[in-house]
Amino acid sequence: MTAVLEPTTTARLTPARRRPRYRPAEIGIAAAFLVPSTVVFALFVFYPLGRTIWLSVHGSDIFGNATGFVGLERYLDFLSDPQLRAVLPVTLLFALCTVVPTVVIGLGLAVALQAKVKGVGFFRTLMATPFAFSAASAAVVFDAFYSPSLGVFNGILSHVGVSGVDWLTDPATALPAVAAVSVWRDLGYAVLVFSAGLQAIPEELLEAARLDGAGRWRILRGIILPLLTPTIFFMLVVSTIGSLQTFGEINIMTGGGPDGATTTLVYGLYKSAFAFGASDFGLASVQGVVLLLLVTSITAIQFRVLQRKVFYS
């Protein structure tokens, strides 16, 4: 009897297991618990997402009210106007000037802080200092430092015979100067992340390499860097996305100037929508959508790579 029954029950069970049976009470609880988050996300993430896209394909009057459907016309406006279009290379340059130094210097500092000497823990704690600064507090401090006539940077440079650098008003230096503030602010974070990554590398591995007579440089290149690739990649992604979203430093230090030299995508969005009484929400939304596409594609690439990535640990 059982011998006959068993195959049928298993046969019946297999498809059932694939499609889990739900209990109504559990569904009810799940729905109730998800309500608070869902309401917030619906109102302040998904609805505005749709509305940004909607605004970007509609015209707007001088008060910012949307007028008729215009299709991709505003996108063409954005791409054909040399002054508006300029935000794209500026954004790219700004990303380069923040991401590369952040990763390279952050990694270097974290490696240096692996030294086994007394007081290194104290140094590591101090190294996190920039993390305490918000965009606004770092920006106002550096704005004072960059002052051509009174700032401490030109003050220090005057001791080596360099004088009168117009950090923030010279189009050639403004973008790197603002980027430097972002780099400094991100350093604290980069050092924390890289240090955590370095500490996850098994000590025996390094010890074995040392016993085999490998020098510091070989250990760094042959063991530490390969094992750290996931962390480096993570930092690259995070700081690229962060640099695309930089606003406070630019708003406080340069206002997008001189002559648009620091007007990135986000700052262009702000200027189109809010600065100087402009309220071209359509054009601003075009830039919002471009930003969205950039950030989501970087995130998508990150997921792709992470899925393929071989983790060593």
Partner: peptide, 27 residues
């Protein structure tokens, strides 16, 4: 908990992390 469309719902929650706040700031 188990409920229908759980994976989709979780995906939507995660997706909110990838959306830059600046893109939604005007709406």
């Amino acid at each position: 908990l188990n409920f229908p469309l759980k994976k989709l719902a979780f995906g939507m929650f995660l997706a909110t992390m990838a959306v830059p706040a600046e893109s939604m700031i005007i709406p």
